[in-house]
Computed example of a mutant assay.
Amino acid sequence: MRVVAKFGGTSLGSGDRINRAADSIAKAVEEGNEIAVVASAMGSTTDDLIEDITFEADEADRAEIISMGERTSVRMLKAALAARGVNATFLEPGDEEWPVVTNELGEVDVETTRARAQKLAAELDDTVPVITGFLAEDPEGNVATLGRGGSDTTAVMLGNYMDSDEVVIVTDVEGIMTGDPRVVEGARNVGRITVDELRNLSFRGAEVIAPSALSYKDGDLDVRVTHYQHGDLLTGGTRIEGQFENLVDMREEPLSCLTVAGRAIRNRPGILADLSTSLRDAEINIDAVASGMDSVTFYVDSTRAEEAETLLHDEVVTEDTLSSVTVNDEIAVIRVTGGELPNQPGVIQGIVSPLADADINVIDIITSATSVALFVAWDDREDALDIIQNQVQE
């Protein structure tokens, strides 16, 4: 089995933790597995170095300084492996076998990086490479960085390009939890989660794996998150499934939007639950919800709109701080899904502006970390779909 194991800063935060990491790597090698290691800077070294740059420094000097955390980690971990009889070598930018290269735009040079990674993979039966995470080498041979969470990106990218069976992210949490164990009782480990679910959580504050790393995961590559105390690289934790796919999809049946207005929307706890429950009890599916300062809009199938309006009206007349309910029929929804959406500045404008140029009014937009839903008049749906598909393909 070929595995890329990434050890985060907390899992290398002390001599004892480096020993624990080396033990788990040595055990996996002894069992006959091919292991490549990606190491982050020990503890908070990178943040400390950044804070200490209180003087003017150009990007090249900053990158060299910041890289010292990872450079130290790989030397420590390589030495710990050697002490256990494991044939290991450390790699950093500037080495002949260094794999991660950027182009003139500062983006990963996929062709060159893939070729170097595959060459490195061919040597895994002989040695364990310990690779600095977060770092890259530009076309002139200077040190470059991959941005926040770059060690995760290094690991998943190399796992992909080295045709690995699995990437293991070793960190200070036991995989993905059902909730923050510091806040809620009974939080437990989630055995499996999809890339879309995880990316939405990541962009909403769950710091488990860098969202940028997941764009390198394909359907054949397993990615798992596990705790450094577990001690076994090949078991435990949470398995991340699937891959990001760019998809433009239009709902085949029209929707109606029902908007409830009133100051209770933001002033009375539970009002949204009451409104939603009235629809749920009638088995009316809510396709989407959008909220404003003093209103909330429910999108439901047009065939159930009249019934939904009656139910919501009953809630309005029993709640003094709700004003009214209105209905807008015959609405189409087009959804754009893609793992790279959050990394594309101006992506919303790039989709909406061509619609405006075609005199197509966008009734509503609902976004998440991995998707954009655009609501337009039903009669405009085909033209809107063609425009959006052309924009996404570009």
Rank of each mutant, 00 (worst) to 15 (best):
V168W: 00
T171S: 10
D172L: 11
D172F: 11
V173G: 01
G175T: 02
G179T: 06
V183C: 07
A187Y: 09
A187L: 10
N189Q: 13
V190W: 06
V190G: 05
R192W: 10
T194Q: 04
D196K: 14
D196I: 14
L198E: 04
L198P: 04
N200A: 08
S202L: 08
S202W: 05
G205D: 05
G205H: 04
A206C: 09
A206M: 09
S212V: 13
S215M: 11
Y216G: 03
Y216S: 05
K217R: 13
D218V: 13
V223Q: 01
V225K: 00
V225S: 01
H227N: 05
Y228A: 05
H230V: 10
H230P: 02
D232K: 07
L234D: 02
T235R: 13
T235M: 12
G236N: 04
G236Q: 03
G236S: 07
G237F: 00
I240V: 13
I240L: 10
I240W: 00
G242E: 02
Q243M: 15
Q243V: 15
Q243E: 15
F244A: 15
F244Y: 10
V248K: 02
V248G: 03
M250S: 10
R251Q: 09
R251T: 12
E252T: 11
P254D: 04
L255M: 12
L255I: 14
L255E: 03
S256P: 06
C257W: 07
L258W: 01
L258D: 01
T259D: 07
T259Q: 10
G262E: 02
G262H: 02
A264F: 12
I265Q: 00
N267R: 09
